[in-house]
Amino acid sequence: MAAAAAAGAGPEMVRGQVFDVGPRYTNLSYIGEGAYGMVCSAYDNVNKVRVAIKKISPFEHQTYCQRTLREIKILLRFRHENIIGINDIIRAPTIEQMKDVYIVQDLMETDLYKLLKTQHLSNDHICYFLYQILRGLKYIHSANVLHRDLKPSNLLLNTTCDLKICDFGLARVADPDHDHTGFLTEYVATRWYRAPEIMLNSKGYTKSIDIWSVGCILAEMLSNRPIFPGKHYLDQLNHILGILGSPSQEDLNCIINLKARNYLLSLPHKNKVPWNRLFPNADSKALDLLDKMLTFNPHKRIEVEQALAHPYLEQYYDPSDEPIAEAPFKFDMELDDLPKEKLKELIFEETARFQPGYRS
């Protein structure tokens, strides 16, 4: 834990890192770190609560700039109880001085990944967590956004079992017609939660990839272990087919990539493993919904509104309290091709509203 900075004593240090967030945020305490930044909790002297502050230093890398800009653009436009918001952003007053960006968010005690390492969940908890994931996802999908990296560590939890989806750095506007060349190379989302079509096709992607990830998360809540822990690309596919069985001819016809289709045709026939054999203690309604989410063919996979209306979630289902976005989200430009200098300018502009004396 960093010592509390005395008023006016300059930035606090946390594990050798400068955290320049005073005077409003003090009493910093280390939480963890990701690929390009550290997260601390801090005391907000204005709202009198502890908050989470993520320090991001992305400006050396085009990919990190892209992810940072995506996350900020999306989260500043989203407003939903099951999606983490941005409360404040701290950065230098000029673009030349801006080396880091500090993002202030609600402090959540833990995440689903940490929880599943230590606790076996009751059916009631599984049901409530799944409902909140789908409630947040309904809003995301209504904005025409794909999260693309749903996994237990991106689901934040607090002691009252509130759940918030975080990390929109890989999110995209849904565009089933656009052929994202190089899709697989830039697709760094965790393999275990990846839909089979991501490994088999490169053309376009749809909201059904997020539903697949939610199915993987439900299976993990039922058993405290990942359902498809593939060691590499082909191993991942083999794990999936080992449980779902061989795809039907109709399902194979959806695979545009001939090499991928021929690979699947070359494999020995596998039978589907019954879900109640894998999860003998699970609620039968939970397994019915799991089956509809972990469907090989993305066109037959359940959609988020149908999933919310499934009998497993009937005690929570309330369409009048499951809000959607006001308007579909649009990125003005494809960020993939922009140089990091341009992305830095866009991050600077996007964060201006939090600067003292800002006038829109």
Results as ranks from 00 to 15, higher is better:
Ile56Ser: 03
Ala4Tyr: 00
Thr185Tyr: 07
Gly16Lys: 08
Cys166Ser: 15
Tyr131Asn: 15
Tyr312Trp: 05
Gly32Phe: 03
Pro176Asn: 04
Met13Ala: 13
Val104Tyr: 04
Tyr36Gly: 03
Leu308Asp: 04
Lys285Tyr: 10
Asn224His: 09
Gly136Ile: 01
Lys272Cys: 10
Lys285Pro: 08
Asn87Tyr: 15
Asp162Tyr: 14
Asp167Pro: 02
Gly242Met: 07
His147Asn: 14
Ile103Tyr: 07
Cys216Val: 09
Cys40Met: 01
Arg135His: 10
Phe279Pro: 00
Gln105Arg: 09
Leu155Val: 01
Arg50Trp: 09
Glu33Trp: 00
Asn82Lys: 13
Tyr312His: 03
Lys344His: 06
Ile31His: 01
Thr110Gly: 06
Leu335Gly: 13
Ser208Gln: 05
Leu218Pro: 12
Asp167Glu: 09
Lys99Met: 14
Glu349Ile: 01
Thr181Pro: 08
Phe19Asn: 13
Leu107Tyr: 10
Asp149Arg: 09
Leu244Asn: 01
Leu234Tyr: 12
Leu308Phe: 04
Glu71Gly: 00
Ala195Ser: 14
Ile74Ser: 05
Lys344Pro: 07
Gly215Asp: 11
Pro58Gly: 01
Ala309Leu: 06
Asp332Trp: 05
Ala7Gly: 10
Val46Lys: 04
Lys259Ile: 04
Leu170Val: 01
Ala5Thr: 13
Leu115Tyr: 02
Asn45Thr: 11
Thr160Leu: 10
Lys54Met: 14
Thr159Ala: 09
Ile86Ser: 12
His147Cys: 04
Arg353Phe: 05
Ala282Met: 02
Asn158Asp: 13
Lys55Met: 13
Glu303Trp: 04
His61Arg: 10
Met199Pro: 04
Glu96Trp: 03
Gln119Met: 07
Leu200Arg: 05
Thr206His: 11
Gly136Thr: 01
Thr351Lys: 06
Met13Phe: 00
Gln62Met: 08
Leu290Pro: 14
Ala5Leu: 14
Arg359Glu: 12
Met221Phe: 06
Ser360Gly: 12
Trp275Ala: 07
Leu69Ser: 07
Tyr30Lys: 06
Met333Ser: 09
Ile243Pro: 05
Ala282Val: 04
Phe331Trp: 00
Ala260Val: 08
Leu76Pro: 02
Leu265Asn: 06
Tyr187Val: 08
Trp275Phe: 05
Asp175Arg: 11
Asp111Cys: 08
Cys40Pro: 00
Trp275Thr: 11
Asp332Phe: 01
Tyr64Ile: 12
Asn201Ser: 12
Asp111Ile: 00
Pro328Ser: 11
Pro176Arg: 12
Leu278Thr: 10
Phe168His: 02
Arg172Gly: 12
Pro328Val: 06
Asp336Arg: 09
Val188His: 05
Thr160Trp: 10
Ile240Ala: 04
Arg359Ala: 12
His180Tyr: 11
Leu308Trp: 07
Arg15Leu: 14
Val21His: 12
Phe329Lys: 04
Ala143Asn: 06
Glu305Trp: 01
Ser284Gln: 09
Leu163Asn: 05
Ile103Trp: 07
Ser142Trp: 04
Cys40Glu: 03
